[in-house]
Amino acid sequence: MIRTLLPAYAAGRESTRDLTDPTLFAAERREVADALPARRAEYATVRRLARSCLADLGVPPAALVRDVHGAPRWPAGTVGSLTHCRGYRAAAVARSRDADGVGIDAEPCAPLPSRVLAGVTSAAERAHLAELGARRPDVPWCQVLFSAKEAYYKVWYPAMGSWLGFDDAEVVLEPSGDHGTFTVRPVSGGARRARRADAAFDPVATGFPALPGRWTAGTGLVVTAIAAPAGSLPRRAQAGRTATGTLRCAQ
């Protein structure tokens, strides 16, 4: 599934179960030493998948430890992304000469609770979802939109070094059966940002572009992917800035 969503220059691996006895580096073992067994299993599985992706690109295995915000650190000369949800784990990696960033996300193929939906979408997005739902009620459009924002953040954060709120980006989805494309763009004036300490931060002013991506839904899953070609992103224009109420990052 993940391979069909990525460009040819990116490597992708996935699994519908936790892999048996994946080897971890010492630094990785320390990160999950106190975690529950299920968390250790998913952590180890996505890293084994990621190292398989690195091998596909001719890159030696390396420890994939997390930064202070939970995002995995990739070996020099590579960019990548990890995702996991119930019944699915995946990794995607590309060389930095080919891509400035890669973001993937997987979610259960089910509608979002109304309270959650209101918290992660704008009024324009909810109108967009209603229109799509009238045309294709069999697709969990709200989950596709949520997943697309997660994938976008996984490209944004390594490039910009800052966090992004759900109302700092808007998604437009394009359907084609049980798969399709989407575009995510940064927006100014998010209602929730106005109540935060960094209200003056304008995602649009960073010059970070709208990015296209691909999605698929089926077998109980929604999966999304974005790859930003090399030279397409600004680099850490807002390094060090943080915010609350943001998209997830920890893998």
Rank of each mutant, 00 (worst) to 15 (best):
Val223Cys: 08
Glu174Arg: 15
Leu82Ser: 06
Arg17Pro: 00
Asp56Gln: 09
Ser96Leu: 08
Leu5Ser: 08
Pro140Trp: 00
Pro72Gln: 07
Trp156Glu: 02
Leu173Pro: 08
Val102Glu: 03
Ala110Tyr: 01
Arg89Ser: 06
Val46Met: 01
Glu107Ala: 07
Leu19Gly: 00
Tyr43Asn: 01
Lys154Asp: 12
Val46Tyr: 00
Arg192Ala: 10
Asp105Cys: 05
Leu173Cys: 10
Ala8Trp: 02
Leu19Ala: 00
Ala199Met: 02
Asp56Trp: 08
His84Asn: 12
Arg51Gln: 04
Thr246Phe: 10
Val65Gln: 06
Thr242Tyr: 01
Asp178Val: 14
Ala110Val: 15
Ala130Pro: 12
Gly189Lys: 14
Leu221Met: 14
Pro108Gly: 09
Asp138Phe: 00
Thr244Gly: 14
Thr20Arg: 12
Trp156Ala: 03
Ala26Phe: 00
Ala55Trp: 02
Arg248Ala: 09
Gly213Asn: 11
Val116His: 04
Ile104Trp: 07
Val144Phe: 10
Arg195Pro: 00
Ala33Ile: 02
Pro234Phe: 12
Arg39Ser: 08
Ala55Glu: 13
Ser147Met: 06
Leu54Ile: 04
Ser114Ala: 15
Arg39Pro: 02
Asp56Tyr: 06
Val172Pro: 01
Glu125Asn: 05
Arg135Asn: 04
Lys154Ile: 11
Ala92Ile: 10
Asp34Leu: 11
Ala94Ser: 15
Ala90Gly: 15
Pro22Tyr: 08
Asp18Asn: 10
Gly190Tyr: 05
Arg97His: 08
Asp202Ser: 05
Ala92Val: 02
Asp198Tyr: 02
Phe201Cys: 02
Arg185Asp: 07
Arg192Met: 13
Val155Phe: 11
Ala62Pro: 02
Gly240Tyr: 07
Leu173Met: 09
Leu24Thr: 04
Arg17Thr: 15
Ser232Asp: 09
Gly180Trp: 14
Pro158Tyr: 14
Arg89His: 13
Leu64Ile: 05
Thr181Ser: 15
Arg66Phe: 04
Arg97Asp: 13
Ala130Trp: 06
